[in-house]
């Protein structure tokens, strides 16, 4: 009798939790109860996999650990970075290595994307980390840039734009504005000159509105000068072109500055 009563109580609790909340609400209490018991084993299996198995298994163990600690945005970033950037254990030829690196990057981004909902106020930080991951992966293995669609610069900018819209702070805004030349180069490579010029206009306007002295002054002027050169408006200005080509921040745009 007591067992039936207990079972009925449990069913009522689960039904109530689902009715008034969601399945997540229903599972939260049992998950919270199990977590302290499970965490040491999850950490140990992660350490064991990292030391004795391959990076893919280590990342799977990390995901199980992260599933037990929802909201840990830094954890998601650390394990995804480790897998995407250092997971290429097998020695391969350059093409196969680039494909493997791209696959790892896409898996890491998918896992981070999946984790966004659980990160709450840290979602913007996670999105900014995703943008960093794209850039670092391309820097680490340049062969993956042509394999990615959209272009890595466009992908990173989209992620930063989303981070900005989710309350990303000044760092995200600044980074996005300083990354404009690379995004502009990606658009030019794709043959979209009009969008590239529009992007420079918008970036200059955003620099002016940013309220950050360095952005509103020197960087805005640099972007406007770049726009002038790219659009071909006005007389040729070789001095300005050489000056722009020498600027390391505009390195990605150098082939287009004529």
């Amino acid at each position: 009798m007591r067992r039936i009563l207990l079972a009925a109580l449990l069913c009522a609790w689960v039904a109530g939790a689902i009715a008034f909340g969601s399945m997540d609400h229903a599972l939260r209490a049992p998950r919270d109860l199990v977590r302290p018991v499970a965490l040491p084993f999850l950490w140990r299996s992660l350490a064991d996999a990292a030391e004795r198995s391959d990076p893919a298994e280590a990342y799977q163990c990390a995901q199980r650990l992260l599933a037990a600690t929802p909201g840990w945005a830094d954890g998601h970033a650390v394990f995804a970075f480790r897998y995407a950037l250092l997971g290429g254990a097998t020695v391969l030829d350059p093409d196969a290595r680039a494909i493997a690196a791209k696959d790892r990057l896409l898996v890491a981004l998918a896992v981070m994307e999946d984790a966004r909902a659980s990160c709450g106020p840290k979602e913007a930080a996670l999105l900014a980390d995703m943008a960093w991951l794209v850039e670092l992966a391309v820097r680490n293995e340049p062969g993956i840039a042509p394999l990615l669609d959209p272009d890595p610069a466009i992908l990173a900018d989209r992620l930063l734009a989303e981070a900005e819209s989710h309350g990303g702070g000044r760092m995200v805004r600044e980074k996005r504005l300083y990354d404009v030349p690379r995004l502009c180069a990606a658009l030019l490579r794709a043959g979209d000159r009009r969008s590239a010029l529009a992007l420079l206009d918008e970036a200059a306007a955003r620099c002016a509105q940013s309220g950050i002295e360095e952005l509103a002054g020197e960087w805005r002027a640099t972007l406007l000068a770049t726009r002038t050169l790219l659009s071909g408006e006005g007389p040729a200005n070789p001095t300005l072109r050489d000056q722009q080509k020498a600027d390391p921040r505009l390195e990605a745009l150098a082939p287009f500055l004529r």
């Binding site: 030391e51 250092l86 254990a89 020695v91």
Partner: peptide, 14 residues
């Protein structure tokens, strides 16, 4: 040459 910079860094040679 293969590069090693971390302890227990795995390198798989087919």
């Amino acid at each position: 040459p293969i590069s090693f910079d971390g302890t227990r860094q795995l390198v798989v040679l087919p």
